Simulated assay, not measured.
Amino acid sequence: MSPIRSVQVAEPAGPFRVVERELPEPGHGQVRVTVEACGVCRTDAAFINAAFPVPFPLVPGHEIAGRIDAVGTGVEGWTPGQRVAIGWFGGNCGVCSACRGGGLIHCQRLQVPGWAYPGGYSEAVVVPATALARVPEALTAAEAAPMGCAGVATFNALRRSHARPGDLVAVLGLGGLGHLGVQFAAKLGFETVAIARGTDKTDAATGLGAHHYIDSTTADVAEQLQNLGGAAAVLATAGNSAAMGATIDGLRPGGELLVVGADPEPIQVSPFQIISTSRVVRGHPSGTARDVEETLHFAALTGVRPVIETRPLDEVEAAYHRMLSGEARYRMVLTTGS
C-alpha cells in the first residue's frame, strides 16, 4: 500500500515535520477517511505545547472533512465515498455514567482527534464510526472542516440558550468563533449585537449579519446592551475573562452568559450581579457528531459559512502561525489536494 503524508510534532513545542507513514487500516467499529481539509484551531497550540496530556509524537487536527475510504467490521450505515466531518467529538466510550445518561460530549473517555488518536493534519485518518457527521453537498470540505469545532460550539450554545427569535443576543469577539456566532445568531432570528475592539470592525460585523456593533474600547458594553433593552444572552467567544465579566450587567433578568472562549483567568462576577436578576453564567462544550451534522445542515440551509484561508499541508508552519498571530481572517484550513 502507498504511504500517506502526515504532519508530526515529535516533542512538546517542537517543529512541524511532514513524514510518511503506512496507510492505517480501520479496525472493528472504525472507518478510514481520506482527509480533504483540516482546520487549524487555537486548541491545536495547546496540544502542541503539552497543555493537555497528549502523547508524542503528535499528529494534530480535530476539524476534519473528507470522504470515507474504507469501513471496518461492525460498522453499519456508512459506506465508502460518503462525505463526512469529524470534530472535537471524535468518539465516546458508551459505558461511563455520562454516556449512559445521554451526555455523550461529557464522556469520561472522550476521544479527541489529535489526542486519542492521530488527527487530521494528514492525508488519511482512522476514526470511530460514532465520530462521523454527514456533510451536505452545499458545503465544500474546507468550509465544513471548521464546523466540527468552532461551528458546532457557537451554534449549540445559541440554540440551547433561553433566547428566542426576536430577542437581543450579543456575541463577544469577532474572530474565528465570533464571526460564526454572529452569523448563526442572525440566522436564528435574534436581534444580533457584535462586540469587539475598535471601530474598524463595524463593517465586518454588519456584513456578517449583526444589527448593532459595540466598540468595547470606547463604550461601556453593559450600558450599551441595557440601552438596547438588555441581552437575553451573550455568547462569549473571545478568550478574555475580563471582557466576559464586563458583559454581565448588560444581561436582562434571567439572561445568560454563554462561555465558549477559553481563558485560564477567573471570570469576575459578584453575587449581587446575579442573585436578584437570576442571571446565569453557563459553559458550553462543542457537540456530538449528531450536533455537528445538524450544524452543517443548518449552515447549508441558511448560508452560514466560515470565512477561511486555505494552505496546502506542506505549508502547515505558515498556516499555524497565521492562526496564532490573528492575521488570518477568520479560520485557517489545511488542504491535501484529495
Rank of each mutant, 00 (worst) to 15 (best):
L132K: 00
I105H: 07
E137W: 04
G114M: 02
R109L: 04
G166T: 13
A142I: 09
P146M: 04
V126K: 03
G81F: 07
G103Q: 13
L104F: 09
R109N: 11
P165N: 11
L168E: 08
W88D: 04
G91Y: 15
L168A: 05
V125W: 06
N156F: 02
H162S: 15
G91T: 15
R83A: 06
Q108C: 05
R164L: 13
G87D: 05
P146G: 02
S161F: 00
H106N: 15
G114L: 00
Q111C: 01
G81A: 12
Q108G: 11
C93K: 06
G77K: 04
L110V: 07
L110K: 07
A141Y: 03
L110N: 14
G102C: 06
A170W: 09
G90I: 01
C96L: 03
P165L: 11
L110Y: 13
N156K: 13
P113E: 12
G87H: 13
G114K: 03
P80L: 10
F89W: 14
A163K: 09
Y117I: 12
R83E: 04
A116N: 11
C99S: 05
I105S: 08
Q108N: 08
P165W: 12
R159L: 02
P165A: 11
G114H: 03
P165S: 12
A170L: 08
L139G: 04
G166F: 14
L132F: 01
C96M: 04
W78P: 03
G114S: 09
Q82T: 15
R100V: 14
D167N: 14
C93Q: 03
Y121D: 02
S161A: 02
A153F: 01
T140G: 13
C107D: 10
G91V: 15
H162C: 08
V112K: 08
L104M: 04
E123R: 11
V152E: 10
H106F: 12
A138Q: 15
V135W: 08
G120W: 01
W78R: 04
E143F: 00
E137F: 08
P118T: 14
A157E: 09
A85S: 14
H162A: 15
I105F: 05
G90T: 04
P146V: 02
T154W: 12
C99V: 01
N156M: 07
Y117G: 00
L158H: 06
A144L: 05
L139V: 06
V95L: 10
E143Q: 13
F89L: 13
T154F: 10
V125I: 09
A142R: 09
V95A: 15
